Amino acid sequence: MARAKIADDVGGPAVRAAVAGGAPRDTTATAVRYLLQLLAERAPGNTVEVRVPPFGAVQCIPGPRHTRGTPPNVVEMDAATWLGLASGSLTWEEGVASGAVHASGQRASLEGLVPLRY
């Protein structure tokens, strides 16, 4: 069953609160999921899996489809790093260089896709 889409009037305020800092866990969870939703809408596909445990994951970016087992292209980070990338306060290069972003696979990159508009 597909997860319900987070409406802009719910997701936008959650993102702003989470980026500002000190937001409750449920607000941060909503913000992370909303931004993952926006990423999947911006770059639809099934080539790269973006994971932000424990809040969510999406498959995105057009290309070869992954259907079974561990995806060959995975980008994983914590919520604070994802909020930074999606809001533009952290660049892709900074996230990877610092080790806050773990990217494995030939196509595992969000360069040019973040920051997101919310």
Rank of each mutant, 00 (worst) to 15 (best):
M1Q: 12
A2L: 14
R3E: 15
A4Y: 11
K5R: 15
K5C: 07
K5I: 12
I6D: 05
A7S: 13
D8N: 13
D8R: 14
D9I: 06
V10I: 15
V10F: 08
G11C: 04
G12L: 09
P13L: 09
A14E: 00
A14Y: 00
V15Y: 01
R16N: 13
R16H: 11
A17K: 14
A18R: 05
V19W: 09
V19A: 14
V19Q: 06
A20N: 12
A23F: 04
A23V: 08
P24E: 15
D26E: 15
D26G: 01
T27H: 05
A29G: 09
A29F: 03
V32C: 08
R33N: 07
L35W: 09
L36V: 12
L38C: 12
L39M: 05
L39F: 02
L39Y: 00
A40L: 04
E41H: 13
E41R: 14
A43G: 04
P44V: 08
G45M: 04
N46K: 14
T47V: 09
V48W: 03
P54N: 08
F55D: 12
G56T: 11
A57C: 06
A57D: 08
V58E: 01
V58C: 02
C60P: 00
C60K: 01
I61N: 11
G63T: 11
P64F: 13
R65W: 07
H66P: 04
R68W: 10
R68V: 10
G69W: 06
G69A: 05
T70K: 14
P72Y: 00
P72M: 03
N73F: 01
V74A: 03
V75F: 03
E76S: 14
D78L: 09
A79C: 06
A79T: 05
A80R: 15
A80Y: 09
T81S: 09
W82C: 06
W82V: 00
L83E: 02
G84Q: 02
L85K: 01
L85I: 10
L85A: 02
G88K: 05
G88N: 07
G88M: 11
S89I: 11
S89R: 15
S89Q: 15
E93G: 09
E93K: 14
E94H: 07
G95L: 02
G95K: 00
V96K: 07
V96S: 04
V96F: 05
A97W: 04
S98F: 06
S98K: 07
S98I: 06
S98Y: 07
G99D: 10
A100L: 09
V101Q: 00
H102R: 14
A103I: 02
S104N: 12
Q106M: 13
Q106G: 08
R107D: 12
R107K: 15
L110P: 03
E111M: 11
G112K: 11
L113S: 03
L116A: 08
